[in-house]
Amino acid sequence: MKDWWQATFPKGRQNLIISDIQGYPVQISYGEKGRGKPLILLHGMGSWSYNWRHSIAALSKHFRVICFDAKGFGYSEKALSRREHNGHQIIEFQRIIQALCDEPAIIVAESLGGLVALALAQESPQLIGQLIVVNVPVFTKQLPHWGMSLLAQIPREVIETIDSLRLAYLFAPLLREIMAIERRRVLFDPSILTKEDVYWITYPFIEFPGTIAKVAEELQIAAREIENWQVNKPNMLTQIQNNLSAIKCPTLVLWGDQDSWFPVSHGEKLHQHIPNSKFQILSNCYHDASTGAFEELNAAILEFLRDTKF
Protein backbone atom coordinates (compact mmCIF):
# COMPACT_ATOMS: atom_id res chain seq x y z
CA MET A 1 0.00 0.00 0.00
CA LYS A 2 1.39 3.40 -1.00
CA ASP A 3 2.73 5.52 1.84
CA TRP A 4 0.01 7.95 2.91
CA TRP A 5 2.39 10.83 3.54
CA GLN A 6 3.94 10.53 0.08
CA ALA A 7 0.53 10.27 -1.55
CA THR A 8 -0.84 13.31 0.31
CA PHE A 9 1.92 15.91 0.57
CA PRO A 10 4.28 17.13 -2.19
CA LYS A 11 7.34 16.61 0.04
CA GLY A 12 5.90 13.60 1.85
CA ARG A 13 6.55 13.29 5.57
CA GLN A 14 8.91 15.87 7.01
CA ASN A 15 10.50 16.02 10.45
CA LEU A 16 10.89 18.91 12.83
CA ILE A 17 12.89 19.00 16.07
CA ILE A 18 11.47 21.07 18.93
CA SER A 19 12.18 21.25 22.65
CA ASP A 20 9.49 19.73 24.85
CA ILE A 21 8.28 21.16 28.17
CA GLN A 22 11.29 19.60 29.95
CA GLY A 23 13.78 20.99 27.44
CA TYR A 24 14.50 17.70 25.67
CA PRO A 25 14.64 17.60 21.86
CA VAL A 26 11.72 15.73 20.33
CA GLN A 27 11.02 14.78 16.71
CA ILE A 28 7.66 15.86 15.25
CA SER A 29 6.39 14.46 11.95
CA TYR A 30 4.42 16.74 9.67
CA GLY A 31 3.37 17.39 6.10
CA GLU A 32 2.30 20.51 4.27
CA LYS A 33 0.46 21.35 1.08
CA GLY A 34 -0.64 24.56 -0.61
CA ARG A 35 0.38 28.19 -0.37
CA GLY A 36 -0.83 31.26 1.45
CA LYS A 37 -1.63 31.86 5.09
CA PRO A 38 -0.64 28.95 7.33
CA LEU A 39 -3.53 26.75 8.43
CA ILE A 40 -2.66 24.10 10.99
CA LEU A 41 -4.79 20.98 11.52
CA LEU A 42 -4.60 19.53 15.03
CA HIS A 43 -5.92 16.02 15.72
CA GLY A 44 -7.53 14.59 18.86
CA MET A 45 -6.72 11.83 21.35
CA GLY A 46 -5.45 8.59 19.84
CA SER A 47 -5.48 10.01 16.32
CA TRP A 48 -2.80 11.32 13.98
CA SER A 49 -2.61 13.41 10.82
CA TYR A 50 -4.51 10.79 8.82
CA ASN A 51 -7.71 11.84 10.56
CA TRP A 52 -7.64 15.05 8.44
CA ARG A 53 -7.35 13.11 5.15
CA HIS A 54 -10.63 14.55 3.81
CA SER A 55 -9.74 18.18 4.57
CA ILE A 56 -6.15 18.58 3.41
CA ALA A 57 -6.77 18.79 -0.35
CA ALA A 58 -9.88 20.98 -0.02
CA LEU A 59 -8.28 23.50 2.33
CA SER A 60 -4.89 23.54 0.59
CA LYS A 61 -6.50 25.15 -2.46
CA HIS A 62 -6.75 28.32 -0.36
CA PHE A 63 -4.11 28.02 2.37
CA ARG A 64 -0.75 26.54 3.29
CA VAL A 65 -2.07 23.52 5.16
CA ILE A 66 0.19 22.02 7.82
CA CYS A 67 -0.71 18.69 9.39
CA PHE A 68 1.40 17.28 12.23
CA ASP A 69 1.38 14.37 14.66
CA ALA A 70 1.53 15.52 18.27
CA LYS A 71 4.33 14.05 20.40
CA GLY A 72 3.53 10.44 21.26
CA PHE A 73 1.02 10.05 18.44
CA GLY A 74 1.28 8.81 14.87
CA TYR A 75 4.80 9.02 13.46
CA SER A 76 6.16 11.50 16.01
CA GLU A 77 8.61 10.57 18.75
CA LYS A 78 7.24 8.65 21.75
CA ALA A 79 9.87 9.68 24.36
CA LEU A 80 9.15 6.58 26.44
CA SER A 81 11.92 7.21 28.96
CA ARG A 82 10.25 10.37 30.31
CA ARG A 83 7.00 10.91 32.18
CA GLU A 84 4.82 13.59 30.66
CA HIS A 85 4.06 16.84 32.45
CA ASN A 86 0.54 18.21 32.48
CA GLY A 87 0.17 20.91 29.85
CA HIS A 88 3.06 19.68 27.70
CA GLN A 89 0.86 19.67 24.58
CA ILE A 90 0.33 23.43 24.85
CA ILE A 91 4.05 24.23 25.01
CA GLU A 92 4.85 21.82 22.19
CA PHE A 93 2.08 23.23 19.98
CA GLN A 94 3.40 26.73 20.63
CA ARG A 95 6.90 25.71 19.54
CA ILE A 96 5.63 23.95 16.42
CA ILE A 97 3.82 27.11 15.31
CA GLN A 98 6.88 29.24 16.04
CA ALA A 99 9.10 26.88 14.04
CA LEU A 100 6.85 26.55 10.98
CA CYS A 101 5.03 29.89 10.74
CA ASP A 102 6.28 33.45 10.34
CA GLU A 103 2.82 34.96 10.85
CA PRO A 104 -0.24 34.20 13.02
CA ALA A 105 -1.70 30.85 12.00
CA ILE A 106 -5.23 29.68 11.39
CA ILE A 107 -5.88 26.78 13.75
CA VAL A 108 -8.42 24.03 13.08
CA ALA A 109 -8.52 21.63 16.02
CA GLU A 110 -10.72 18.67 16.85
CA SER A 111 -11.63 17.08 20.21
CA LEU A 112 -8.64 17.13 22.62
CA GLY A 113 -6.73 19.15 20.03
CA GLY A 114 -9.40 21.80 20.41
CA LEU A 115 -8.76 21.99 24.15
CA VAL A 116 -5.04 22.48 23.51
CA ALA A 117 -5.83 25.19 20.95
CA LEU A 118 -8.12 27.04 23.38
CA ALA A 119 -5.38 27.05 26.01
CA LEU A 120 -2.81 28.33 23.52
CA ALA A 121 -5.17 31.09 22.35
CA GLN A 122 -5.32 32.24 25.97
CA GLU A 123 -1.59 32.01 26.68
CA SER A 124 -0.08 33.07 23.33
CA PRO A 125 -2.74 35.03 21.43
CA GLN A 126 -0.13 36.51 19.07
CA LEU A 127 0.35 33.09 17.45
CA ILE A 128 -3.27 32.56 16.37
CA GLY A 129 -5.12 34.65 13.81
CA GLN A 130 -8.33 32.66 13.57
CA LEU A 131 -9.49 29.62 15.52
CA ILE A 132 -11.88 26.80 14.61
CA VAL A 133 -12.58 24.14 17.24
CA VAL A 134 -14.69 21.01 16.79
CA ASN A 135 -16.36 18.86 19.48
CA VAL A 136 -14.10 19.97 22.34
CA PRO A 137 -13.99 18.24 25.79
CA VAL A 138 -13.89 21.57 27.62
CA PHE A 139 -16.84 20.88 29.95
CA THR A 140 -16.70 17.10 30.16
CA LYS A 141 -17.15 15.41 33.54
CA GLN A 142 -15.66 12.04 32.59
CA LEU A 143 -13.65 10.25 29.94
CA PRO A 144 -16.22 9.62 27.20
CA HIS A 145 -15.42 5.99 26.35
CA TRP A 146 -15.02 2.84 28.42
CA GLY A 147 -11.81 1.95 26.59
CA MET A 148 -10.29 5.27 27.58
CA SER A 149 -11.24 4.72 31.21
CA LEU A 150 -9.72 1.24 31.10
CA LEU A 151 -6.41 2.43 29.65
CA ALA A 152 -6.28 5.24 32.20
CA GLN A 153 -6.51 2.72 35.05
CA ILE A 154 -3.94 0.17 33.85
CA PRO A 155 -0.46 0.78 35.36
CA ARG A 156 1.94 2.26 32.84
CA GLU A 157 4.41 -0.59 33.43
CA VAL A 158 1.83 -3.10 32.19
CA ILE A 159 1.13 -1.08 29.05
CA GLU A 160 4.85 -0.68 28.38
CA THR A 161 5.31 -4.44 28.68
CA ILE A 162 2.54 -5.00 26.14
CA ASP A 163 4.29 -2.56 23.83
CA SER A 164 7.76 -4.06 24.32
CA LEU A 165 6.46 -7.56 23.56
CA ARG A 166 4.88 -6.21 20.33
CA LEU A 167 1.56 -7.80 21.22
CA ALA A 168 -0.27 -5.22 19.11
CA TYR A 169 1.77 -6.40 16.12
CA LEU A 170 1.23 -10.08 16.91
CA PHE A 171 -2.54 -9.59 17.22
CA ALA A 172 -2.84 -6.96 14.50
CA PRO A 173 -5.99 -8.39 12.81
CA LEU A 174 -7.84 -8.43 16.13
CA LEU A 175 -6.69 -4.92 17.04
CA ARG A 176 -7.76 -3.60 13.66
CA GLU A 177 -11.19 -5.17 14.04
CA ILE A 178 -11.72 -3.79 17.54
CA MET A 179 -10.60 -0.29 16.58
CA ALA A 180 -12.73 -0.39 13.43
CA ILE A 181 -15.82 -1.25 15.49
CA GLU A 182 -15.13 1.60 17.92
CA ARG A 183 -14.38 4.16 15.20
CA ARG A 184 -17.56 3.30 13.36
CA ARG A 185 -19.52 4.04 16.54
CA VAL A 186 -18.53 7.71 16.33
CA LEU A 187 -19.69 8.02 12.71
CA PHE A 188 -23.24 8.80 11.57
CA ASP A 189 -22.67 6.55 8.55
CA PRO A 190 -20.34 3.73 9.66
CA SER A 191 -20.06 2.38 6.10
CA ILE A 192 -17.82 5.28 5.02
CA LEU A 193 -14.90 3.83 7.01
CA THR A 194 -13.00 1.75 4.44
CA LYS A 195 -10.49 -1.08 4.91
CA GLU A 196 -7.75 1.34 3.89
CA ASP A 197 -8.94 3.77 6.58
CA VAL A 198 -8.77 1.06 9.22
CA TYR A 199 -5.28 0.10 8.05
CA TRP A 200 -3.91 3.61 8.42
CA ILE A 201 -5.82 4.54 11.60
CA THR A 202 -4.34 1.52 13.38
CA TYR A 203 -0.91 1.64 11.71
CA PRO A 204 0.96 3.56 14.46
CA PHE A 205 -0.48 1.32 17.19
CA ILE A 206 0.68 -1.80 15.39
CA GLU A 207 3.97 -0.69 13.87
CA PHE A 208 5.43 1.78 16.39
CA PRO A 209 6.16 0.44 19.89
CA GLY A 210 5.29 2.98 22.52
CA THR A 211 2.18 4.37 20.85
CA ILE A 212 -0.25 2.56 23.15
CA ALA A 213 1.80 3.49 26.22
CA LYS A 214 1.86 7.17 25.31
CA VAL A 215 -1.88 7.25 24.60
CA ALA A 216 -2.51 5.57 27.95
CA GLU A 217 -0.31 8.13 29.67
CA GLU A 218 -2.24 11.00 28.09
CA LEU A 219 -5.49 9.42 29.22
CA GLN A 220 -4.15 9.11 32.75
CA ILE A 221 -3.31 12.82 32.71
CA ALA A 222 -6.80 13.62 31.42
CA ALA A 223 -8.44 11.43 34.07
CA ARG A 224 -6.48 13.22 36.83
CA GLU A 225 -7.50 16.58 35.43
CA ILE A 226 -11.18 15.64 35.45
CA GLU A 227 -10.91 14.18 38.96
CA ASN A 228 -9.19 17.32 40.27
CA TRP A 229 -11.82 19.49 38.61
CA GLN A 230 -14.63 17.53 40.24
CA VAL A 231 -13.17 17.97 43.75
CA ASN A 232 -12.10 21.59 43.21
CA LYS A 233 -8.37 20.91 43.29
CA PRO A 234 -6.07 23.00 41.05
CA ASN A 235 -6.27 21.84 37.45
CA MET A 236 -5.74 23.15 33.93
CA LEU A 237 -9.29 22.36 32.86
CA THR A 238 -10.71 24.91 35.29
CA GLN A 239 -8.05 27.41 34.24
CA ILE A 240 -9.04 27.05 30.58
CA GLN A 241 -12.74 27.36 31.43
CA ASN A 242 -12.20 30.47 33.54
CA ASN A 243 -10.17 32.23 30.85
CA LEU A 244 -12.33 31.60 27.79
CA SER A 245 -13.33 35.27 27.69
CA ALA A 246 -9.65 36.13 27.15
CA ILE A 247 -9.75 34.59 23.66
CA LYS A 248 -9.99 37.59 21.32
CA CYS A 249 -9.31 36.09 17.88
CA PRO A 250 -12.27 35.31 15.59
CA THR A 251 -13.42 31.86 16.67
CA LEU A 252 -15.77 29.31 15.14
CA VAL A 253 -17.22 26.60 17.38
CA LEU A 254 -18.43 23.57 15.39
CA TRP A 255 -20.37 20.72 16.95
CA GLY A 256 -21.87 17.46 15.76
CA ASP A 257 -25.61 17.45 16.28
CA GLN A 258 -25.45 13.84 17.50
CA ASP A 259 -22.14 13.81 19.34
CA SER A 260 -22.73 11.34 22.17
CA TRP A 261 -19.36 12.06 23.77
CA PHE A 262 -19.80 15.80 24.29
CA PRO A 263 -23.36 17.13 23.82
CA VAL A 264 -24.31 20.15 21.71
CA SER A 265 -25.08 22.08 24.90
CA HIS A 266 -21.32 22.11 25.59
CA GLY A 267 -20.73 23.79 22.24
CA GLU A 268 -23.39 26.40 22.93
CA LYS A 269 -21.84 27.10 26.34
CA LEU A 270 -18.37 27.40 24.84
CA HIS A 271 -19.64 29.87 22.25
CA GLN A 272 -21.29 31.97 24.97
CA HIS A 273 -18.01 32.24 26.87
CA ILE A 274 -15.87 33.35 23.88
CA PRO A 275 -16.77 36.95 22.96
CA ASN A 276 -15.76 37.01 19.28
CA SER A 277 -17.16 33.61 18.34
CA LYS A 278 -19.71 31.99 16.09
CA PHE A 279 -21.47 28.68 16.68
CA GLN A 280 -22.55 26.20 14.03
CA ILE A 281 -24.04 22.73 14.29
CA LEU A 282 -22.89 20.01 11.90
CA SER A 283 -25.85 17.91 10.79
CA ASN A 284 -25.81 14.11 10.84
CA CYS A 285 -22.54 14.21 12.72
CA TYR A 286 -21.31 12.15 15.65
CA HIS A 287 -18.02 12.85 17.42
CA ASP A 288 -15.61 12.19 14.53
CA ALA A 289 -16.51 15.21 12.41
CA SER A 290 -13.33 15.23 10.32
CA THR A 291 -14.28 11.81 8.96
CA GLY A 292 -18.06 11.64 9.31
CA ALA A 293 -19.04 15.16 8.24
CA PHE A 294 -15.99 16.37 6.32
CA GLU A 295 -17.89 18.04 3.46
CA GLU A 296 -19.97 20.21 5.80
CA LEU A 297 -16.95 20.74 8.02
CA ASN A 298 -14.75 21.95 5.16
CA ALA A 299 -17.50 24.23 3.85
CA ALA A 300 -18.03 25.75 7.30
CA ILE A 301 -14.30 26.37 7.74
CA LEU A 302 -13.93 28.07 4.35
CA GLU A 303 -17.05 30.20 4.81
CA PHE A 304 -15.90 31.36 8.23
CA LEU A 305 -12.41 32.22 6.99
CA ARG A 306 -13.82 34.07 4.00
CA ASP A 307 -16.13 36.15 6.20
CA THR A 308 -13.66 36.96 8.98
CA LYS A 309 -10.36 38.73 8.54
CA PHE A 310 -7.46 39.32 10.89
Rank of each mutant, 00 (worst) to 15 (best):
R95C: 02
V116Y: 06
A119F: 03
D69M: 11
S149Y: 11
F68W: 12
S124Q: 15
A117S: 15
I96P: 01
V136C: 03
L127A: 04
P125L: 02
A109P: 13
V133Q: 02
A121H: 01
D102S: 13
R82W: 14
R82H: 15
H85I: 14
D102T: 12
P144K: 05
N135P: 10
L100D: 05
V136G: 01
V133T: 08
I91L: 14
K78H: 13
P144E: 04
Q98H: 00
G113Q: 04
Q89F: 14
S111P: 09
I128E: 00
A99T: 04
D102M: 09
I128A: 00
R83T: 12
V116G: 09
L131K: 01
C67G: 04
A105R: 01
Q122M: 07
A99E: 05
V116E: 04
I106P: 04
K78D: 05
A121P: 08
G74M: 07
P104H: 08
Q89C: 10
A99H: 04
F93D: 03
E103R: 08
P144D: 04
A109G: 12
E123H: 10
D69C: 13
Q89Y: 06
F68I: 08
A119I: 06
E77V: 13
L80W: 08
G72D: 09
L120M: 02
S76W: 07
G72S: 09
I90M: 01
Q89K: 13
K71E: 11
L115V: 01
K78W: 08
A121M: 00
A109H: 01
L150P: 07
W146T: 14
V136S: 01
Q122W: 01
S124E: 14
E84D: 13
E84K: 13
P137E: 04
Q94Y: 07
S124G: 05
P137R: 04
Q126D: 11
L151K: 07
I107E: 03
Q142E: 14
I90T: 11
